[in-house]
């Protein structure tokens, strides 16, 4: 009986499993192997041990730059996005048409092509005097700025893009989390004379902790994988990282090494470094949350 069903069962699993192994498990194994080789895609890979990782983490200044940029960008983007998403969720959690329109509005960037969005920002921050950003600062008497050609402005611009693009997504999750908090908690707090702030501080925030952890970790993961914004907005003639690599981050660097310089072994080492960074940061985040919960 059991075996009679096992055959169709395996047959049903087979198409997915074959593709899963062929285009995910096998490539991952390959990628791990490439990371320890010197490989240009034409000649067979030659094994070099941990040389790629040693060079990457201890000698490569561009990788150091990509790493620092990534951490600064991720810290700023995730903090601002999460805080704003929470504020928006508290303000617009209701079922009135006004709240629903606001939620729709904030969510729009999440469904819009990242390339289209990046091009819009490129147009807003154009160096020309008639660009929107330059026009707006002109109203308060500031001279036009070479937005995209000023290295110190690269990360701030990318953070603005990330917050604009990401707060609606966090907001939707926070709204779901807020609406799951039992109303009785608030009622008994009000009976005890708790102010709106006290209710937020002592009920809403603690109850939202799992949701917050979830939002923070998913934002962290996607922020570390940023590519399109850098590639489109800060695209230069010769490099993918913007002026003086001011916007170079992990995935753009991976793309640069792998698909413009064809150092596939080295690029694979970058890919696994990306995995390690995301994994470690997520684990730290989980530990911190757990520790905070036990306080």
């Amino acid at each position: 009986m059991r075996l009679r069903r096992a055959l169709p069962g395996y047959l049903m699993l087979l198409p997915f499993a074959a593709l899963f192994v062929g285009f995910l498990v096998w490539p991952l194994a390959n990628s791990l192997y490439f990371a320890f080789t010197n490989y240009n895609g034409v000649k067979p890979p030659s094994f070099v041990g941990i040389d790629n990782f040693r060079r990457l983490w201890f000698e490569d200044e561009r990788f150091g730059k990509a790493l620092v940029n990534s951490f600064v960008y991720v810290a700023a983007a995730v903090t601002l996005t999460t805080g704003l998403a929470l504020a928006l969720a508290v303000a617009f959690r209701g079922t009135s048409w006004r709240d629903r329109i606001m939620r729709t509005l904030f969510f729009l960037p999440a469904v819009t092509s990242t390339i289209a969005v990046a091009l819009i920002w490129r147009w807003i921050f154009t160096v020309e005097d008639f660009g929107l950003a330059n026009t707006v600062i002109g109203w308060v008497g500031v001279e036009p700025v070479q937005w995209l050609a000023t290295p110190s402005l690269t990360i701030p611009i990318l953070v603005v893009m990330a917050v604009w693009g990401g707060c609606g997504y966090g907001m939707v999750i926070f709204v779901a989390g807020l609406n799951a908090i039992p109303e009785e908690h608030y009622e008994s707090a009000r009976l005890d004379g708790a102010s709106a702030w006290q209710q937020f501080w002592y009920i809403t925030l603690p109850q939202l902790k799992p949701v917050t952890t979830y939002v923070v970790i998913t934002s962290l993961i996607s922020a570390f994988q940023v590519f399109e914004a850098v590639y489109i907005v800060f695209r230069g003639v010769s490099s993918v990282g913007g002026v003086q690599d001011s916007g170079l981050m992990l995935v753009p660097y991976l793309y640069d090494m792998g698909f413009t310089k064809f150092q596939l072994g080295y690029a694979s080492a970058i890919a696994w470094s990306l995995f390690v960074v995301i994994f470690v940061v997520s684990m730290i985040q989980l530990r911190v949350t757990r520790a905070l919960r036990e306080l």
């Binding site: 899963f20 285009f23 995910l24 498990v25 991952l28 990628s31 596939l264 694979s268 890919a271 990306l274």
Partner: peptide, 17 residues
């Protein structure tokens, strides 16, 4: 478990395949 690995990690081998 495979969902924990960023998809970009399989990018280069998939390109070669």
């Amino acid at each position: 478990a495979s969902m924990m690995v960023p998809w970009q990690v399989s990018l280069i081998p998939n390109y070669l395949i």
